[in-house]
Design a protein around this nucleic acid. Structure first.
Lengths: 153, 153
DNA sequence: TCTGAAAGTCGCCGTTC
DNA sequence: GAACGGCGACTTTCAGA
C-alpha cells in the first residue's frame, strides 16, 4: 500500500491494543468520522498490513505451563520446506522460525510439563532429518502486544 | 478457572482464528444459544484465559522487514528484573524471554534493515550490563495463530 | 426468547489536491 | 478527475428482562 500516514498508524496501534474496539470508538480517538475510519481499516486489511484479529490466550491458565525455544539442526540435505514440515508436524510446536546462523530452525514449543517437553523433543529427534537440538526453557515472557515501530523508532 | 470443557476450547479456537467473530456466529458453530456463548466468553475473560484481543499486523508491509532473535548474556550481578528492563527499554525489542540454560535473555527484535539491526544490537551492548550477544536473523516464520493444545495433544 | 438500543454497512455528495 | 472525508438510511448485533 502507499505508505500509511500517521492516522493509519494510530488506528493500527489502537487495534493492536484492542482488536474488538468499535469503529465509533476509534473515530472519536483519532478525530475522524466512523466512515472514514472504516475505510482506512479496510484499506489496511486489503493491503495485508492487518492480517487478521485474534484472541490472546494465556496457555498457563489451561495447564500448558511450559514453553521453550528449541533450536534444531538438520542434515545438510534437508530442504527448508522439509524443515518447516518436520517441525510444524509436531502438534506442540506453536511457531517455526527459519534462522540464519549456526542452526537452522528455532521452534516455539508448548508442553504440559517438563516430561511432556522431553517427549516432544524426543519426537523431533527421531523424525530422521534432525541431527541436533538445543532447548531453552522460557522462565518469563514479556511480549509487547501493541508493539509498533513508528511509536519511537 | 475450573478446567474448561470441550465447548470452551472450541470457542477459544474460534476466537483465536478470528477475534472479531460475533457471539451469534460462534453460537451457530458450537450449537449453543448466543446467551450461553456470551457467558462462557465472559468466564474465560474473567479467568484470564483470554487476556485480550489484537489485530495481527504484518510488519514487513510497513517497511520493517528484518526480525531476529538476539540472545543476551548479562554480568553475574544483574537481576532478572534489570535484564528485562534493559532489553525492553530498546524500542525495537518486541518481546523479552528470560530463559534457563545460561541465565540468559532472548529478545525478539524488529528493524528496518540489517544496518538498523546492527545499530540496535550496538545499543544493547553499550547499555552496561550486557557482556555478550548472539543474533539469529529470522529468514522465515510460520506462527500457528490459532494454535491450541487440546486439538491434537 | 424477544425487544430496545447501539454499532456496523452502504450509497451519495462535497471538498481538496 | 481521483482520493478522501462526511452525512444519512438501512441492517445487524448486542444486552437486559
Amino acid at each position: 500500500m502507499a505508505t500509511p500516514d500517521p492516522l493509519d498508524l494510530r488506528i493500527l496501534v489502537l487495534l493492536q491494543e484492542d482488536g474488538r474496539r468499535t469503529v465509533a470508538d476509534i473515530a472519536g480517538r483519532v478525530a475522524l468520522s466512523p466512515t472514514a475510519v472504516k475505510r482506512r481499516i479496510e484499506r489496511l486489511e486489503a493491503a495485508g498490513v492487518i492480517t487478521g484479529y485474534s484472541a490472546r490466550v494465556d496457555y498457563t491458565k489451561l495447564g500448558w505451563g511450559i514453553a521453550a525455544f528449541t533450536e534444531l539442526r538438520f542434515t545438510g540435505t534437508t530442504s527448508p520446506g522439509d524443515m518447516d514440515r518436520v517441525a510444524a508436524g509436531i502438534p506442540e510446536v506453536c511457531a517455526v522460525y527459519t534462522t540464519a546462523g549456526n542452526h537452522d530452525v528455532t521452534a516455539l514449543i508448548r508442553a504440559r510439563s517438563v516430561e511432556h517437553l522431553r517427549d516432544v523433543i524426543h519426537r523431533l529427534r527421531v523424525s530422521g532429518s534432525i541431527v541436533g537440538t538445543r532447548t531453552h526453557v522460557i522462565l518469563d515472557a514479556h511480549v509487547k502486544d501493541d508493539w509498533h515501530p513508528e511509536l519511537d523508532g
